[in-house]
Design a protein around this nucleic acid. Structure first.
Lengths: 230, 230
DNA sequence: TTGACATAGTGTATTTTTGACACTAAGCTT
DNA sequence: AAGCTTAGTGTCAAAAATACACTATGTCAA
């Protein structure tokens, strides 16, 4: 026990809620099966302890990489969970993050470690270890709230997408259905999508035009006070 | 050094950004002058270390009480700051909170400890200790963002207030000016204000009616999906 | 007591935004 | 070539946002 302090210290952890968009109308979450007590064999969020010489953000990225193979994805801090008894064995405070992953471009990233990793539909989540159910609930609420005011939805789609895919994404995340013409009118009026000279391939019907999110234009507008909304 | 661990542990702290509304059109922040190194004599956010047997939320409330005398105020978690070198002497991760205080009802709460406490106008803040400037910037951004979608502005006003006070508050926080008639139309249509049979006193002009925020009605509506907006 | 001053309080007309709604176009399959 | 499936498009009505100016009421001071 080589590290001694004058006062007791909590252990600091990070946990990541990873959202991925699967086939249309299915939002999924990546969970890891624990291989150690407490809660051995239970499903849990990918995460781990913060090292003493890395920032909390860096710890979240590292754990995500180590446990799921995901790298360079959208990752944002969610909330810090600090109840005294949230871990039955030690005082552990966890900083939760949420990640948005596009499943097309970041392979399914199954078990990278020995640990089992699996994508679950949001309405079929198992009961999770620790207070992770609570963390998941907070993450879903955040995603729903944020997707309407910030263009983070694009993180869940491939770089090139159709307007129908985009609409379906919003319908899935928000849990409502939108009018096709009104949706297209609104999103195109923002002038944040680049229309590509390409169309969908491999579909058994009229191929849709592909679009791309214009990130640099968005940042310009955002600085001038433009608000992305719905 | 009686507390020993197998791996090194960061020290966990809380810091509170305390907003108070002073005379019309002046939003202030409560700062504490540090009496210990590092950053001795510099202004800083009220805060301190999380005890091993209290939740992080409880630590924030306790520190706020101990350092400023404020109790039972609106307090919400803001963000966790976890850069490696944010404290020059030890690895300290801090969970930042922000508080909204109505200065009329919670006395000016000056120096409760020996430490000096002082309210600063937001545009006259001194340079702060640690990364507290960054925390303050995040808190201001959060307040501006949140005040439009949640009725937290009322936390800054006395229980009974006039519509002009409410409007001035929004103008101050958002940094813009609003049309009086349109503002009143909008806020009254929400049906969240209780019109009292009382008027302002002690003013040298026509006295305004006093209103009160109907919290229970708000919670009912919020559950049915009502959104407070502007 | 009355006039000056300061802020409270009120309505309408215009513009903009939202929301509802249905058909033709294009590409693939059989 | 017929049938299937999704892409793509415009208009009208309702609702919401915005711009805008005068009267009402109380205090204070001359």
């Amino acid at each position: 026990m080589p590290y001694a302090y004058e006062y007791p210290r909590a252990n600091l952890a990070v946990d990541c809620v990873v959202f991925g968009l699967d086939a249309p109308h299915s939002l999924k979450m990546l969970l890891i099966r624990r291989d150690l007590p407490p809660f051995e064999d239970r499903w849990a969020l990918p995460g781990g302890f913060v090292h003493i010489n890395e920032s909390v953000d860096a710890a979240a990225r590292r754990e995500l990489r180590e446990e799921t193979g995901l790298d360079e994805v959208f990752l944002e801090q969610l909330y810090t969970f600090g109840a005294v008894d949230r871990d039955p064995r030690d005082r552990v405070v966890t900083v939760a993050y949420y990640a948005l992953v596009n499943l097309q471009e970041h392979a399914i990233a199954a078990a990278t470690d020995a640990r089992e990793a699996k994508w679950f539909a949001l309405d079929q989540l198992p009961t999770l270890a620790f207070d992770h159910d609570q963390i998941v609930a907070a993450a879903i609420a955040r995603l729903k709230g944020k997707v309407r005011y910030q263009p983070i939805g694009f993180e869940l789609l491939p770089t090139k997408f159709t307007l129908s895919q985009l609409q379906t994404l919003y319908e899935t995340v928000l849990g409502l259905s939108l009018d096709k013409r009104n949706f297209r009118k609104k999103i195109l009026k923002m002038d944040l999508l680049i229309e590509l000279n390409e169309t969908e391939t491999g579909v058994a019907h009229r191929a849709a035009k592909l679009y791309q999110f214009d990130e640099s234009k968005y940042h310009q507008l955002a600085q001038k006070g433009f608000n992305f909304e719905l």
